[in-house]
Design a protein around this nucleic acid. Structure first.
Lengths: 339, 339
DNA sequence: CGTTCGAATGTGCACGGTCACAATTGTGGA
DNA sequence: TCCACAATTGTGACCGTGCACATTCGAACG
């Protein structure tokens, strides 16, 4: 065995060059698939790279090229199923495209936190940013800082449409609402997400639009915080009056809490109250009763989002942005009203 | 206004130096908080940095220092609640410590995929790796590749204990099992996780240990895949014989599917069958019935993991590694057996 | 056989920091 | 006043790669 000398430094492009008997530039060309390299030369260089376990140094490359091949993800509530799935898909898509991903989590939404997170990303000279922190304020801050790199978001906002890509939350919410109306319900509550959230806003608008279009009187939506705990407490409050036969919840977790409260009150689902959720998390089919909900394909969204951003970065801009239509999944938590 | 000339290039350390009337090295010292800098000089340099909106270039720094201040995360099933929470906590902890985080997802467990993911991380010259892909094979590959950087894992393995930090899954599983035995159950099934998973193995061992210690005869555990869907189908199969009064499920999702199947069979929980889960995901309290389970504090685990890795990187090694004891949360899905 | 031209390869420097070392300044004691 | 010594600042090289440009090679052509 050829006594593998314990070089203290990792092999560089010049080490490879020396051993292959070529110039460092030729090695660089092999690395970057330059067309005019003789096949025999290329093979020899690649052999040496293999022998030396050569790895190109990313920092050096970034420095010299002035580009980092890194994109940043700005995410809120990243431990929830939806965002987490999208993030995973984004990372996979990025890796496939030869990009690296760096994630910054937002623990709160005050401007300082947002700015700090953005700073963190900019410090790494990211070439683009994906925002999965669908709060209005985040976009205010983004606009204000006039970010120097392209960014896209998973949620569409009225004013930032040029950066947006999204599920058509509104039509998803309308489909859910329509389903309840078609079943005969006329007294329907909406349990919405937090005020500041774009998704919450869109779903609420879908609900109100459909109710309006079908001429069904509405009550003011209740603003929740996405958690099952909140759904439970909101359900308890609502049931003190019990002037409704159906509830459309802005996400599946709150719907779960709601159903818990309804059962606690001795009522049956969907006999006394129908419940519709939103997202179709993998567990929704096994809730009791199995939840009627609106399915979103988060991984697909993540992938498309990434494609969009990569286009932006390379400035091709083929107008691929647009909405994905979510699908209503009818299970056992909805039925006709009792009266 | 002083006509902000649109420099094509971002300001460098030398630009700052020129405007502040010092050498570039002095600017570098200000950046790195070198002790011997006159306060007045420091202030002047900082003022110029502020004026120029100077940002140090990370690639250049990494290149010259030979260190990237980046750590890698190797994750499987990162869209699930547990891993996602831990990842978020790791990222926060890393950011606080001035490190950057790069995540690679494992979509499958074949060695090639693992190696590709590791390659991806190594290419960025990460200084350490956190493994949240608790499959045995991942560690086999890790050992085989003799990774040049320190790595830690969230799960303890017998043979890799020096890299491990974990919940004491075994004692958690023993507590859950003991709870069922104390209630009077003698015919208890265990729905385990996939064969290859370290956590699944540990929980199974905990179950078997406790059953053995209490002299209760056991049947062979069923190997699942963590999903609610699997729990449902496993439940359906088990109920064809129905020679048990309790089931201990390796995670909450499978427990949810199980309960779904039990209800479908017209049986009551916990009247006919008791169910215990593991993890205490936020929804578990709102399942029907609310699930008795074992709580794990994932964010805390992520933070401690990060602390451990940073110690490893700086080679302090204060022997902080160790287990966190999870806690049994008794809710309504468990009770004494009917016969 | 010289010329021409494209393919293949080499040379030197720039990128933006840090490091090792040199140079300068300031301070107190002999 | 001069010197030793610490505090402060400057100089030049270097990290590993890519780029612009120069050079050499090789084949086709007149």
């Amino acid at each position: 065995m050829p006594a593998d000398l314990p070089k203290s430094r990792a092999p560089s492009i010049r080490d490879v060059a020396r051993l292959a008997g070529v110039s460092h530039q030729t090695v660089s060309r092999v690395l970057n698939n330059h067309p005019s390299i003789r096949d025999s030369t290329k093979a020899r260089v690649q052999q040496v790279m293999e022998d030396l376990q050569y790895r190109p140094n990313r920092a050096a490359r970034a420095l010299s090229r002035g580009t980092s091949r890194t994109i940043g993800v700005l995410a809120a509530s990243s431990s929830q199923y939806g965002p987490a799935s999208s993030i995973a898909a984004i990372q996979d898509a990025a890796r496939e495209a030869g990009y690296y991903v760096n994630t910054a989590n937002l623990t709160s939404v005050d401007p300082d936190t947002i700015e700090a997170a953005l700073d963190h990303l900019m410090l790494q000279s990211v070439e683009g940013i994906v925002v999965i922190a669908p709060q209005m304020r985040v976009f205010d801050v983004l606009e204000q800082l006039s970010i120097a790199v392209p960014y896209v978001t998973l949620q569409s906002t009225g004013k930032l449409n040029e950066h947006g890509l999204s599920f058509d939350q509104i039509s998803g919410a309308r489909a859910a609402t329509r389903h309840l109306i078609d079943l005969g319900h006329r007294n329907i509550y909406h349990l919405a997400g937090p005020q500041d959230w774009i998704e919450a806003e869109a779903r609420m608008r879908g609900f109100l639009d459909e109710m309006g279009a079908m001429d069904v009187p509405t009550t003011a939506p209740i603003l929740g915080d996405w958690t099952a705990d909140f759904g439970y407490y909101a359900g308890r409050e609502l049931l003190r009056v019990r002037d409704f036969t159906a509830i459309f919840s802005s996400n599946d977790q709150m719907a779960l809490g709601l159903m818990h409260a309804i059962r606690d009150a001795g009522l049956s689902i969907p006999g006394d109250v129908s419940v519709v959720g939103f997202d179709d998390i993998p567990e929704a089919a096994h809730f009791w009763p199995p939840l009627t909900t609106v399915r979103q394909d988060f991984p697909e969204l993540g992938r498309r989002c990434m494609a969009l951003l990569l286009d932006d970065i390379s400035a091709v801009s083929p107008e691929r942005r647009g909405a994905i239509i979510p699908e209503l999944v009818v299970r056992a938590s909805t039925g006709p009203p009792a009266f």
